[in-house]
Design a protein around this nucleic acid. Structure first.
Lengths: 218, 218
DNA sequence: CATGTCGGTGAACAGTCGTCCACCGAACGG
DNA sequence: CCGTTCGGTGGACGACTGTTCACCGACATG
């Protein structure tokens, strides 16, 4: 029973985590805009004023949530980075990984998807920044794919952002799904796989430049 | 000068339009969730209680805004329907039309983009429905394109929703742009055009059935 | 052991919110 | 013409909001 008495910093960190977890829980019902400081502190079981011991602002709490969310996203892309024989395999595997992570971090994804478009300027900017970083990572990864080695930076980024947009759209659809509709989810996944396949089908036929300017490497 | 004294219905409609316009104006700064009934009525210059003579709810006002927004969207697709010689022309022309309409109905688009993900369930459902209808219309339109005549319904819808997702992503980016950054806007447009071009580049090579195969190079 | 630090308390504040109500007066309709 | 309809008024209500403050007591430190 007698656990070692909590150090002060430990206690503070624990409360901070409780605040983030409580916010995330309440965000399943309300949007971040409707989420009040008082609701969060009440959920945690502390007095409203105590909130300021951890965050200066609700916006600051929101930013912390963005950080958390993208933390799990990075884990995702890392595990999907395993080398796969063909593009089709890469696509199926990546989508699979995405779905798994959306299920594991449903509330985080929902938060990201909703606040990306609707949140306060600070939140939107933070999410957009992280998303851009994510896109860039994907672009670097794709350098190793067949055909893409020759593509210039702009084209690769263009492709990567198309993939990210498609994937985010899927994630958005998944987070809004009731838990008990596996057949709808399967249809969404199937569509996403096909969309990605279609996109990469065009890759070998992409002309480096629509109008010839500088010819490129090799 | 002496205009005929306004009929009662005319007056009511005028106030209703004023409410919608005021809401749209205020939505440039706050999100719909933060937009209060009182703010809207104050902007119009009527008393809060008078709101209920026009809408039962703020949600109902939101739904009216969704309707308005998609009204202008339908006008857009109709004008982009003009037959064009090549896919590239169709793409450039469509994107052009999109950009024009985003500028002309900036607040409507911003509202749609934000509430699609973040709004109340009723709003999100309404927007998703309209968007699905929009996608279906596009699918029907594309039937006439080369290669696409043979595609089955699912594949065409898959393609149409990919196009719509890409276009919505562009619209979202455009609505958040400061008015005085034409070069950023140009970059976004350029990227979108290329993404659409890449997508349609894969169309001729799409196999009706997703068996394992490899793309023949050009 | 004494002192200071600091997370959490409880109460108060000035606003804002949605909603309801009796009421006014002009357009309406028989 | 006269009674009805109804959009808008003005005020009130209870609830909820963010923020502040003095204060408490357990941990921290010398």
């Amino acid at each position: 029973m007698a656990r070692p008495p909590e150090t002060r910093q430990e206690g503070k960190d624990r409360t901070r985590r409780k605040l983030l977890r409580a916010a995330l829980k309440l965000l399943e019902k309300r949007s971040f805009d409707r989420l009040s400081l008082r609701q969060v502190t009440k959920e945690v079981g502390i007095v409203p004023g105590a909130f300021y011991r951890h965050f200066h602002d609700m916006d600051e709490l929101g930013l912390a949530l963005v950080e958390e969310s993208f933390g799990s996203l990075r884990g995702m892309i890392r595990s999907a980075r395993a080398d796969v024989p063909t593009w089709d395999d890469a696509i199926v595997r990546s989508v699979e990984t995405l779905v798994t992570h959306v299920h594991a971090h449903r509330t985080h994804f929902r938060f990201l998807v909703r606040e990306r478009a609707g949140g306060t300027p600070a939140l939107r900017a933070a999410i957009e920044d992280e998303l851009r970083a994510f896109t860039d990572e994907l672009a670097v990864d794709m350098r190793g794919f067949p055909y893409l080695g020759d593509w210039d930076e702009e084209d690769i980024t263009m492709l990567a952002s198309l993939v990210v947009a498609t994937v985010m759209d899927t994630a958005a659809a998944l987070t809004d799904l009731p838990r008990d509709r596996p057949e709808v989810e399967a249809a969404i996944i199937r569509t996403t796989e096909r969309q990605l396949r279609l996109i990469f089908l065009g890759v070998p036929h992409w002309a480096p430049r629509p109008s010839s300017r500088h010819a490129g490497s090799g």
